[in-house]
Design a protein around this nucleic acid. Sequence first.
RNA 1: UAGGGCGUAGCCAAGCGGUAAGGCAGCGGCCUUUGGAGCCGCCAUUCGGAGGUUCGAAUCCUCCCGCCCUAGCCA
Length: 579
Amino acid sequence: MDAPRDFIREIIVEDLRSGRFDRVHTRFPPEPNAYLHIGHAQAILLNYGIAQEFGGKFNLRFDDTNPEKESAAYVEAIKRDVRWLGADWEDREFYASDYFEQLYRWAEDLIRKGKAYVCDLSPEELSRQRGQLIRDGDRVITPPGMESPYRNRSVEENLDLFRRMRAGEFPEGSRTLRAKIDMAHPNINMRDPVLYRIVYAHHHRTGDAWCIYPTYDWAHGQSDSIERITHSICTLEFENHRPLYDWFLDQLGVHHPRQIEFARLNLTYTVTSKRLLLRLVEEGHVRGWDDPRMPTIAGIRRRGYTPEAIADFARRIGVSKAESIREIELLEHCVREDLNRRAPRRMAVLEPLRVVLTNYPEGKVEWFDAVNNPEDPAAGTRKVPFSRVLYIEREDYMDAPPPGFFRLAPGREVRLRYAYFIRCERAVRDEGGNLLELHCTYDPATRGGNAPDGRKVKATLHWVSAAHAVEGEVRLYDRLFKVPDPLDVPKGEDWITNVNPNSLVVLTGCKLEPSLGNVQPGERFQFERKGYFCVDPDTKPGAPVFNRTVTLRDPWAKAQIKARGAGMRYESPNSDRNA
RNA sequence: UAGGGCGUAGCCAAGCGGUAAGGCAGCGGCCUUUGGAGCCGCCAUUCGGAGGUUCGAAUCCUCCCGCCCUAGCCA
């Protein structure tokens, strides 16, 4: 596979050539306050991939500077996800909180240099004085901010106050340490930003050792510096902060990584914002962070996506500075392509319709060879039992087939995969007119699936022998949102209204071929003609649960959806089943 | 421009002065014991717009237009 070329790698190549750096060291710096999502996956793979390609190192560092929102549970979840993606940080698992003492000392250094001061302004006052973005017609202006009345305290007073802040002598929020830069700077980040705030909160790692915490701006760049990071890759919104990080590093005279910003990943039909995902979880719109409908790495994993598919996706989308919205179809394409190569085929009837072969001997059982994976001869074959009573998919039969429907209908002949041609003789109904079962006949001469007289059928159906079937639960997932851009709602409306009410359809009593009776969570299969499925952790012995990862490409189904108009993508062919 | 960024097909994206790669999506066709997979073909006379430089411009220059980010003691 050819190495991706993008503007970031070009910069790195140039840095190496010019001698700005003689090595490459990247990192992924999550805040442990939520689960990681697909956008983070891109960032992880980008940073890790670059380290690999350039023979460099890759760190995992938790930017845990806000104890009120962070927890050890998130740390564990994040590590699990990064590891699953295949990014190896070896022994370099770090925490910004590891650097609290060093950051504190650097803050005192700044004070001694007259470059930082303790400010007693309240949050409201500070905000007011920093200056606002003001609309002036169709342009925006930023009048200069006001200098704090505490700005010119002496070094001694600042040192004293700062130490007493640390000692816990002042109430929460009453004072801050601010850098002394330029209140008239056009970049608001440079208008004496806050370095430390007083917060009496328990930190998941440092406990109650601190009551002052560094802001992200003060901690991030220096943490990268401490770790000797060469290239600090981050998203576009930090571009405005770069001058500030540069200023800190230059004032301190320490190792100076190069920050490079790229556009974050946006995906159609999903939201990729920790805040929004948190809401979906907290309000119960999904079953948790790892709900297979979630774009979290944990959710995607449970859904059945492979790390390889995600890596392929990340490689294909590349990186750039242009803000964009990727279509979910590309991600789906990547899993299909990967799973097509590796997923063993199985037959599973999701919505069963009984079929009785009236001319097939009672009690007779034949075992047919079924190919495990046509894409991989080494996967071999397995035996599947065939008998007089079978199940086929309810949607594979229609009383009055429309043009283009190739499957079973009165008088129609189709092939049962690996078995025989069967012809539909009669549909049996109850007094209410509900379809109970089909009576069909099979042609013994077509054993194995080919007619000696050369006649053709237009459809091949999957099937499961009733007497041998294993019952299981299948969860069909669809897009979590009804529209490509979930946040696009009429003014005053809540984006939550865009959640797809049919994003999960649970099917019970599905009929599975016997080899599916003993499966382990995480195993993936292709259910022929239906899609790719992954065994869910909810599986109990004798009661398998499968998640649909993605459907197969299905022009017929797509045409039906199109014909129905902008309806739901899933519609039970048997309306009384899911009532 | 307050400052910082970004505009190449429906969605992405290559291109780095020599005459618009590739992928996804879409549309045709072939093939098929998965309506899967695979294969073939089509899909930008033009790069946000207008000028300019040049033998030659998506690439260089000028002006204009549009979109995004920033007003947390979040990250």
